[in-house]
Simulated scan of single mutants.
Amino acid sequence: MTTRSISALALLFVIGMSSIAAAQRPRREVQWVNPDIPKMPGLTHKVLESKALGHQVGYVVWTPPEMDTSGETRSPVIYFLHGAGGSEKSDAAGFASQVAGAIRGGKLPAAICVFPNGGMSGYRDDAETMIVDELIPLIDKDYPTQAKPSGRVICGFSMGGAGSVHLSLNHPDLFCGAGSWGGALSFRGSGEDSPLLAVAKQNADKLKANKYSLLTINGDQDRPDAFQPLKAIFDELGIEHRTIVLEDTNHNLGKYHEKTSGVMLTFLKNQLSMAGP
């Protein structure tokens, strides 16, 4: 056997062992309850006994000081979904701080913010059931919310951005709008085979009845065409879908916040402005 053949065999051995190691590498363990949240006025960590998941799951709620605790005036709710590898505490203080600033500046109604823990689920299957059938009804029970589609919006980053689109299209009776930072219909490929395209057509009448609108923001280095197949469907159906592509932007939530926090919050305000007291 030649030296070249031995080197080739050695390379194949290394590649093979690397593949085996990757296959045997344990998946990232999900921590479903994370109570060590940052200290911030109005920010509270809570635990839900989830039948859907079969275990406890944490969530964070931020309430604005302007909230009417008497219940005479009902508050809209913003649900924010974290990205892969995050948890209920990941973006709670950062996003709630932006919402608080917008409320103080008169640029947003006194909205409650809710931060679920979706693990690594993509906000599908049992995690979807937990949010839709358990968490949202619990929030409406425990807080003076506007418990109707025009009083709820949902947004998020990465997996959470994709999850916001998924949940809002599949449950048009729950939300009047969704916003996505750095999300995608499919993280592999163009998304032209996404089941959400058929879902959008199926639920078009309900979406339009609730004056639903979608805002998707992607960087030019972060799947800039991620939602184009859905936008084409929305254009055909007459449903509003604004897409924004940011220059010199990769998959970084800080950059999205820095460049378009105001845009996202204005979008949410416009959707919630249709909600009555």
Rank of each mutant, 00 (worst) to 15 (best):
P26H: 10
V263C: 00
E72H: 08
F157W: 09
L268E: 11
I244Y: 05
S213L: 01
G177P: 08
A147Y: 13
E258H: 12
G94K: 06
S261Q: 11
K259Y: 12
F115T: 04
F234N: 12
G276K: 15
K211N: 14
K206D: 09
L185C: 00
S180Y: 01
G156R: 01
A111G: 03
P277C: 09
I131T: 11
N203I: 12
L185I: 04
Q24C: 12
D140P: 02
A96P: 03
K206S: 13
G254V: 07
A22Y: 15
L253K: 07
L43F: 03
C155I: 00
A102S: 15
D68Q: 14
G122A: 07
D205Y: 09
I112Q: 11
K211A: 15
T243F: 04
Q56G: 02
E247Y: 02
E88W: 14
R124V: 12
S18V: 02
P109I: 08
G58S: 02
K231R: 15
D205L: 13
L185A: 07
A92F: 11
D173P: 05
A93W: 02
L214I: 13
H251Y: 14
N34P: 04
E240A: 15
L214W: 11
K259V: 05
I233Q: 05
W62V: 10
A204R: 14
I112G: 05
M67L: 14
S158T: 00
Q228R: 14
L53E: 02
A8L: 14
L174Y: 06
N170F: 03
G83P: 01
K107C: 00
S50M: 10
A93V: 10
A21F: 11
P229H: 00
S158Y: 05
G161M: 04
L12D: 08
L108D: 06
G182Y: 03
L48A: 13
K259I: 09
G122V: 13
A10K: 13
L81I: 12
T63E: 08
A10M: 13
A22Q: 09
S164G: 15
G179T: 07
E128S: 04
L108T: 01
K89D: 15
L167A: 05
I78Q: 01
M1A: 08
F80T: 06
R188N: 10
T249Q: 07
M40G: 01
G105M: 12
G182E: 12
I37H: 01
L138Q: 14
G156A: 00
E240L: 10
T73Q: 12
I139S: 10
S18G: 15
F95C: 04
I112H: 11
T2E: 08
P149A: 01
T145I: 03
G219I: 12
A22P: 00
I20N: 02
Y143G: 10
A110C: 13
G58P: 10
D225H: 14
L43H: 03
P144F: 06
Y59F: 15
Q98T: 11
H171S: 07
M1D: 01
A162V: 07
V47W: 04
P65Q: 08
